[in-house]
Write a protein that binds this DNA or RNA. Sequence first.
DNA 1: TTGGTATATCGGGAAAAGTCGATATATATT
DNA 2: AATATATATCGACTTTTCCCGATATACCAA
Lengths: 100, 100
Amino acid sequence: MDQVEIFKALSNKTRLQILNWLKAPAENFPDQPNADFENVGVCVGQIQVKAGLSQSTISEYLSILQRADLVCATRVGQWTYYKRNKEGLAQLSKIINSEL
Amino acid sequence: MDQVEIFKALSNKTRLQILNWLKAPAENFPDQPNADFENVGVCVGQIQVKAGLSQSTISEYLSILQRADLVCATRVGQWTYYKRNKEGLAQLSKIINSEL
DNA sequence: TTGGTATATCGGGAAAAGTCGATATATATT
DNA sequence: AATATATATCGACTTTTCCCGATATACCAA
């Protein structure tokens, strides 16, 4: 993964906030029905409402985070759930500590 | 310091490269005369030549990195020397590990 | 198969970033 | 004071990002 793309993905207040929310999904998304935060994460609609931006914007933002390996997606029926990508985040930490 | 500004500063191939070069100034800037890499760092001109972009662009890039607390500047005579800002980089590492 | 809901993609207008050459400023030398 | 060098700032143009509404696609239920 291109390092620049990772940092671009993080260069936006809302996207940073989403990643932060996904650290504690149960607290940040108490309204999600049938929540399976561990396995799949949080669905797009819940994130969209909390972020207060349009559906298309949040969908786009999530795919930017996904392309940067910062979150991963699971489709279940008509919902797409997103959660943190621990490997990608560990990789990022490694970059910071060893290359910068 | 605004987190978004830090990540924006890192969202550029040349700026990432500069930070990486400054990890090992003696190896990356062997031509700098009267080098005092430990105390002051590397001067703008050396970085500019190595990066291959215009003087104004590199000056601007260094100030973006400085505003993000990723490097610090020392003026000595007509030269400005830049080196890594260890505190800022440690702060960044902390953000990644605790908030994302 | 028709309709409803969730998400993704497309097209676009406004704002920001990338990058340059020209110019200004600060310092050093003569 | 005049000139030379290093760096910073300015103005402009191009490319990218932000964010939206509209539309398409995928899936579900009746």
